[in-house]
Design a protein around this nucleic acid. Structure first.
Lengths: 224, 224
DNA sequence: TATAACCAACTAGCCGGTTGGTTGGCAAGC
DNA sequence: GCTTGCCAACCAACCGGCTAGTTGGTTATA
């Protein structure tokens, strides 16, 4: 096993170039140049161009599943969903290159990666989608969420997340992503929540059925 | 000028193959085969592969600008925004291949198209974005919308729209896109609106409030 | 001295675009 | 109504450039 640092450098550089040019347009020669190596040497670290892509996609889908694993098992559907969206936006806002590449190339994995690798990634994405759909379905069942189809919401959120890293330029001052995270989270949560919270004063808002607050959520496993 | 029908067939087939494989992976040979022509003949209709792409992208950006041109000049910010979102979703839900290609390839136009063509498309997209941002800024100013940054909302909406055609399979029965259009519109509008409308009367269902009426909006030109 | 890290030069195949044509329909001229 | 000429539509075969991956090594290091 070659020593890790150079390998990581190759992967990170490849991620940047894949993002800038797209996977197909990016050449091994260019990647090698940018790392300061000869193309042949890249094959010392990765057996194929597609192997770099596979590793990048695999890492990102795992990072995303870890977000799901951290979603609290208890609490209101709204709180759980809010947690999920916040963490997800935070992730997407940090891992620029890798996640742009992820969202950009995932639609093509069946044509770009060996079958087994593509299947593995597809499976993990499926687990992700099912988990989020179940979060949504539950919130809808308890009346916390508007009765929208889970698929519509899920894919709206994915689309929004997927596009984010390609337009969002991280502010120089560390930690100032906070504003973005807040805004996107607020946008999404208000998009799905059933009613506005009561307006603090006399006027009781409409339809404040507020159903079944403490319905104990089912256990759901994501990883492992 | 070659007669149109065959040319259109070429363009439509190219759109489908660009969607299925991505622009770079799609070969002129394959497109020709699918139309039932020889590759050389394609160059009778289009001077280059990139010319097909340019025409596809150009048509779609124009169709999108036409949506903006139809946004009513009067009415509440919420109503105007709702109109815009509805029309936009409807468009995206209909023009499958072309719009998937549009959203997929637009990030690369500077590398895939001759400079002048890329510039022209970029300009029209810029007009689109500015118009929507101004819609959003105005709604925020009047207090109809939550005080979120127009960019965040704009790009959230674009991302959501961009992803839509790649997962949404049109139902066989014509006109049943209605459900999707309603749901996405509701999601977006509730994501940005400032408060639930006061509940008219005691028992009225939520969401029928129809807020604030005739705040005269500024004139905005999009086309021409 | 063994092995990880590296490279220049090469190969094979692919793909956008070109060349140098052929074909078939249609309209002008007689 | 028949020839002639024209041109859009079409194609098989080719070209040149590019790029993933290979080969047959050399250099650095532990």
């Amino acid at each position: 096993m070659p020593r890790p640092s150079r390998r990581d450098e190759v992967r990170a550089t490849a991620a940047r170039i894949f993002r800038e040019q797209g996977y197909l347009a990016a050449t091994m020669d260019l990647i090698a140049d940018e790392v300061g190596l000869n193309k042949g040497t890249l094959y010392h670290y990765y057996p194929a161009k597609s192997a770099i892509l596979n590793e990048l996609l695999s890492e990102q889908v795992d990072a995303t599943l870890e977000v799901l694993a951290r979603v609290p098992l208890t609490g209101s559907g709204l709180d759980r969903m809010r947690f999920f969206v916040r963490e997800q936006v935070a992730l997407v806002a940090t891992k620029h290159d890798e996640l742009v590449v992820f969202f950009q190339e995932v639609p093509w994995i069946d044509q770009r990666l060996p079958e087994e690798q593509a299947r593995s990634i597809r499976q993990r994405i499926y687990r992700y989608e099912e988990f989020v759909k179940s979060l949504l379905a539950e919130g809808t069942r308890t009346g916390e969420f508007r009765p929208l189809s889970p698929s519509t919401i899920l894919y709206s959120i994915i689309g929004l997340l997927a596009y984010l890293p390609s337009w969002y330029r991280r502010p120089a001052t560390a930690g100032t992503d906070a504003r973005l995270i807040d805004e996107v989270t607020e946008f999404v949560i208000n998009g799905i929540r059933a009613v506005e919270p009561p307006a603090a004063t006399s006027a009781a808002p409409a339809g404040s059925g507020r159903a079944a607050a403490a319905a104990a959520p089912r256990r759901q496993r994501v990883n492992g």
